[in-house]
Simulated scan of single mutants.
Amino acid sequence: MTDLHKHDRVNPLRLPVVAVQGLWLRSTLRLASAPGGGTSGTAPGPTGPPLRLAVLGDSTAAGCGVTGDDEAFAAGFAQEVATRTRRPVDWQVVGQFGATARRVRFRLVPRLDDDLDTVVLLAGANDVLAGRGPSLWREDLTGILADLSHITHQVVVAGIPPFGLFPSIPATLGRYLGERADALNAVSREVCGRNPRTTTFIGSPAGTPPAGFFSTDRFHPSAQGYRFWANDVAARLLPAQPDA
């Protein structure tokens, strides 16, 4: 976690508190860094050929915070898509702990399969923590979307989560990081809005996370948290299908 004061022009009186809380957090936070959600799988569905889905991004894409193959975002989202479309869903994950949008763009996107139906991008938290501002985020997100347009029909950009609700982050620092995340989310909304037929921005679930949302590191989601998040994205992306 670096450059916590960089680009902050909203309330410089907060900077000493932010700096102290940042140092404290850096010295005490023990993050779950091992990917735990599996790298591929299939969610069963009753009819039609399989849809092809990829989840791309940082530690939340990789499933840090859980251990079972069906506990992370990708498996939960694939199952929701299968339920809503009544088609099987083949899913893959390309994620890396600590990845910023720059690393996603140049290192992770090339590892995706071709001819995908949907790619979900889970990224941005590390850009906030590293002090990368809206202009860099815009450049890298635009590049990611351009590269993905050659291999997928649809991209879903998930919003950067609200740091102010993380139990591991002190209040003042959480508000500061949350404001920086809001600035990047505004860029995401604008960039995705340029081509709404193929790109969709879906912000974080509204309200306070439910009990049990966070894993034991109090930073990454738990199995329950990933399922809640995946269900929220799927519900906002796809309308429920009537019973056959």
Rank of each mutant, 00 (worst) to 15 (best):
D140A: 08
I160T: 08
L148N: 14
F213M: 06
D90P: 01
G212K: 09
E190W: 02
G41A: 07
P49C: 00
F97A: 11
T198N: 10
A211K: 04
G98P: 10
A43C: 01
S149N: 07
R86K: 08
T142W: 07
R86C: 04
V233R: 13
V120Q: 10
T200S: 11
D117E: 10
S222A: 07
G48S: 05
A19M: 00
G98T: 10
D217T: 14
R102E: 11
N126F: 06
R175L: 11
L148W: 14
F228C: 14
R26T: 14
L116F: 00
R236C: 05
S168E: 00
P110E: 12
D127Y: 02
G193D: 11
F106S: 14
D69Y: 01
A230N: 06
R87P: 00
K6L: 15
A99C: 08
E71K: 10
T83L: 12
G45F: 11
T60D: 12
V109G: 10
D232R: 12
G57Y: 05
S168G: 01
S40W: 04
V128T: 13
V20C: 03
V104S: 07
P46Q: 00
V93W: 05
P49M: 03
V93P: 03
G22K: 11
A54R: 06
R26F: 04
E139W: 08
L237Y: 09
E190F: 04
V89E: 12
L31F: 02
G131F: 07
V18H: 09
L121M: 10
F228H: 15
G164N: 14
F166K: 03
V109S: 05
F228G: 01
A34R: 15
R194Y: 09
L122T: 09
R86T: 01
P205R: 08
A146N: 04
S188D: 04
D182E: 14
V155K: 09
P196Q: 07
V157G: 07
P161G: 15
G164C: 02
P16T: 13
P49D: 12
W24I: 10
P205H: 09
S149G: 11
V120T: 02
R180K: 15
N195L: 08
P50F: 00
Q92L: 13
R30H: 05
V17E: 00
A158V: 11
T199N: 13
T85C: 03
D70P: 07
P209S: 10
D70V: 04
L116M: 06
P210D: 04
G45D: 05
F219T: 04
Q241M: 13
A130T: 11
W137Y: 11
P242F: 08
A171I: 00
R138M: 06
R52C: 00
V119I: 01
L238G: 02
T67M: 04
P221Q: 12
F166L: 01
W24F: 08
